[in-house]
Design a protein around this nucleic acid. Structure first.
Lengths: 333, 333
DNA sequence: GATTTAAGTGAAAACGTTTTCAATTTGCTG
DNA sequence: CAGCAAATTGAAAACGTTTTCACTTAAATC
């Protein structure tokens, strides 16, 4: 407990300079005579002095730490985003406080507040349902926030995404063009804007363009889990769907395996296209065709954007859309 | 920038008490008259005061933050551990600074030092090669450290694992008993003690018990990636292996898919057993048989152990071994 | 060599808490 | 109602930095 810590004051005394000077050399301030700098550096080395980041944070009001709120790191989609975030954070000398929210609103609010109390310099938020309470909390803080892979209907916050509407529309169109008249839309909670307002919109637009009436029975609102996917086959068959546009890879994998287990051949009897292009798409058999998103980059760009915000640099566009694509694998014809 | 923050002093003035009293009510200290407590609480509410955790950390020398060093969150094995850690950390009011090391020694040392400079109250380390420099750094800090899913040959640090030797031995024995005379051992870097000293030992012991001579050609040292796994089929066939004990699920999935793509039937022509029992084992086809490890629990128990260390509570056993098992799925006969 | 300017340095005041210690109140006991 | 212990409170000193401002010193100019 009584660890005798070496402070800046010890260094100052030992090098017979003032704390201010030590602080200057530690922070690479130019206004120090080379000779003094060397002297101080030597003492630092000798005493093995390590600046205390907490004290530094209090004095400078910068913690070089950012908060990252994620639904669940255990989901590859978010894990890959998180990795992108951490890598560029490290690049800019920031660290990340990572917290799992389970997309639970109460937890999100709570964790946001503890992050703010810890004086993080910025926040990256993932999660797509920004309801009243949470939005309020977002609004009252001056700490920069950016959303990663998460939409903001109100267009208030910086964020980086792909064009979900266009991507889904395009792929559903492809499905239709290949002869599928009954394309299911299997998604996570519709309350989440990314599903309910964006992807669903793309789905509807594709139907409309093809002159196919929208049939509510074809949309399946789920919880985005593998398990749920495996149980969906009977329901999908019951509505005569011949293809599905799925919004999550684990969910899609579940559906696909459920189909295979029920002897429904993918893609011959049922086509599946998924949305996140995580590693998983390559690991399952058949490999899943997917909308491609630069997951790592979404995280990386979001973090980069956040550094700009934190340093008061101008940002040209706060709604960043990264390019998407289609990776045709084996779950579509 | 000039965000007018409400400090404890503002609250004290407004409630006409001293800072000390405010501090007491904020920290739930019992020695406050109920009436004063209420008065202070009201002012806190009214002013919307939020304690500054950085100042608090400086004064109390506790940051309620722990550092977590992980090779790569993008690997499900670690993601699941991390999730366990975060959940119990939250339970005990801690937050987690998560950093990816890529098992790179230089990065590990660097990140450890920045975590220490940030005055984390404890550290959870994942990674299995504790070489000179890193070990040195570990030794010189008084900050509690626990290893999660990571062995320590020197038996110095608290850690939570399963009995890798026994688990591997048991499963290799099963493979042999089923008639496999040529069982390959496919692992990550042998430099890492968990592979080179523990699992390999179990493998050798199983061979020995069965009177099968150890053949170096049957051990494949890899980098634990899916991609590498997919390329291994020819080499495995070349040495006439009929089964493989694999140390990582993604790697195993790669091998299995490589086999299937080369028309080698799993498990009829080649049996595979993997080691981590991540979600992935259920998603691939055939589903992979695996040594089961309570991944989430390893993380959770590690964090729980760390809280004890941080609070100077006695710990009965610093080398915690959680139970393992075997989940027979479809990649073994 | 006197004067001006720039470079280098230090003293001390923040930063927003916790914590120690002493002082004051309060509640009991007899 | 004196006397004492217990319960409440406040003043002020940490905690380990950064940062401002004024002061020296060294260099540059004429």
């Amino acid at each position: 407990m009584d660890k005798q810590t070496i402070t800046i004051y010890d260094v100052a005394r030992e090098a017979s300079v003032s704390m201010a000077t030590v602080s200057r050399v530690v922070n690479g301030n130019a206004n120090v005579k080379p000779a003094t700098r060397k002297k101080v550096l030597d003492v630092i080395e000798k005493l093995d002095y390590r600046p205390n980041a907490v004290a530094r944070g209090l004095a400078s009001k910068k913690t070089t730490t950012v908060g990252v709120i994620v639904p669940d790191v255990t989901n590859m989609y978010f894990a890959q985003l998180a990795r992108g975030i951490d890598d560029v954070a490290t690049m800019y000398k920031y660290n990340i406080i990572l917290t799992n929210s389970d997309s639970n609103n109460e937890k999100e609010v709570k964790v946001l507040n503890t992050l703010l109390s810890k004086q993080v310099d910025g926040i990256i938020f993932m999660g797509n349902e920004i309801n009243g309470k949470l939005r309020e909390e977002f609004k009252r803080t001056k700490t920069p926030i950016v959303f990663a892979g998460s939409v903001d209907e109100e267009d208030l916050y910086a964020r980086v995404n792909i064009d979900y509407v266009a991507a889904v529309q395009e792929e559903v169109k492809n499905l239709i063009d290949r002869g599928n008249r009954r394309v299911a839309f299997v998604c996570g909670p519709l309350e989440q804007a990314i599903n309910g307002k964006f992807r669903l919109k793309g789905y509807k637009q594709a139907l409309k363009s093809a002159g196919i009436p929208y049939d509510e029975k074809l949309v399946f609102e789920t919880d985005d889990t593998y398990k749920t996917g495996t149980l969906l086959q009977p329901a999908l068959m019951a509505v005569n769907a011949t293809a599905a546009m799925v919004t999550d890879d684990e969910l899609a994998a579940g559906i696909m395996n459920g189909m295979s287990d029920a002897d429904v051949k993918v893609p011959d009897d049922f086509e599946i296209i998924t949305s996140n292009d995580t590693k998983l798409t390559e690991m399952v058999r058949p490999k899943m065709s997917s909308i491609t998103q630069p997951l790592y980059d979404i995280g990386a760009v979001a973090m980069r954007l956040l550094t700009k915000l934190m340093h008061n640099e101008p940002v040209d566009e706060k709604n960043v859309l990264l390019p998407y694509g289609l990776m045709k694998r084996e779950s579509t014809k």
